[in-house]
Design a protein around this nucleic acid. Structure first.
Lengths: 200, 200
DNA sequence: ACCTGAACACCGTTCAAGT
DNA sequence: ACCTGAACACCGTTCAAGT
């Protein structure tokens, strides 16, 4: 089945891990299944990566790098943050393997650092202080990760949970809709805008 | 060692699970270790609960019930939401087992439903529409879970990760401080206040 | 009714060995 | 240099059996 006559590379491992996590979900990504998908024994992977966490970190970096950074006109800090948040949400929905990493450990890969650096630059250019810019970026980032983390529990199992639709008369499913994401994001951005206005 | 002469009860199992998760972290809570702590074989647990998820759900409900609801004067919707968020954050830091459940599945236990119901009541009394109230509650809830999820990755291992302090010149550790939590929370609440003001 | 022993189908990872 | 086989120390859960 597997046409992998050629030698296995680190890139092969990472790309296969992305595909496996995309299709099977985060729980479906195991070293053993990954090895199977590559037509190789589990231990062969350890020639190319030192452990599973390293694979996941590479998956995150690949996903962020593939996406690039939001293309928003300079000067519009809120627009950039919003675009970055929406883009990150889309990525994490499509790549549950990456979401798992964000929830498990601090993500400090090159692509993540580049993203943070550009965010800070735009915020500072708009009048945010150094600390304030970091806090603003972190607030949006935290909200986005949290939202995706909750959203994943509602969709991943595809019926794993009893599909509880209502709690206290509220449609729980709507908690993870895109409209809900936008609502909360805009509240944060409005709050940040008010904050920076008082500084200026 | 174990003085469990008396018969095992469901309550015993849940309380032991809380203690284990509190002391060993979420990863340390396994059926086998839980059984060991109770001086019993793993399968004995299945007489009292149907699976691990059920234990975790009970842990969440016990934690929320023990905490009660914030005691804030009527009329102050923002104060109540802020108190509820800070309280939830404290609970989740102290009980990583509960955090794991929030990140894994929709929490719809009685105590969670009571919490949601009171939040909605207060928001609606303050002029939020039915949908708007649910969205406002969800935004704060999402932010809080997300924050705690990220915070847990920085502290749980207690040095499991290389303690990367700086990314792009920013102190990553500050992303999960209580001051940062307050900052983001206040931004959301300010945004929500502005939103409801335009409705009124 | 309550608990145990043995087993099934999984994990991540290490170590010694093969080519 | 690259991969394999066997093994270690774990998981959650089921099933048949013991008392």
């Amino acid at each position: 089945m597997s046409p992998a006559n050629a030698q296995l590379t680190r890139e092969d491992v990472v790309r296969a891990a992305m595909r496996l996590a995309d299709s099977e979900g985060l729980d479906g990504l195991s070293m053993r299944r990954l090895a199977e998908a590559l037509g190789v024994t589990p231990m062969a992977l350890y020639r190319h990566v030192s452990n599973k966490d390293e694979i996941l970190a590479e998956v995150v970096d690949a996903v962020l790098r593939d996406a690039g950074l939001p293309d928003v006109g300079a000067g519009d800090w809120a627009g950039w943050l919003a675009a970055a948040a929406h883009q990150l949400r889309t990525l994490l929905v499509e790549h549950p393997g990456a979401l798992g990493v964000f929830c498990r450990e601090p993500v400090t890969t090159p692509a993540a650092a580049a993203r943070l650096a550009e965010g800070l630059e735009r915020l500072q250019a708009a009048g945010f202080g150094t600390d304030e810019a970091a806090r603003a970026y972190a607030a949006v980032h935290t909200y986005t990760i949290g939202f995706c983390s909750l959203a994943a529990t509602r969709s991943a199992g595809a019926g794993a949970h009893p599909q509880v639709a209502e709690v206290a008369g509220v449609d729980i499913g709507a908690f993870t809709s895109e409209a809900q994401f936008r609502f909360g994001l805009e509240a944060i951005l409005a709050g940040l805008a008010a904050e920076v206005r008082t500084r200026a």
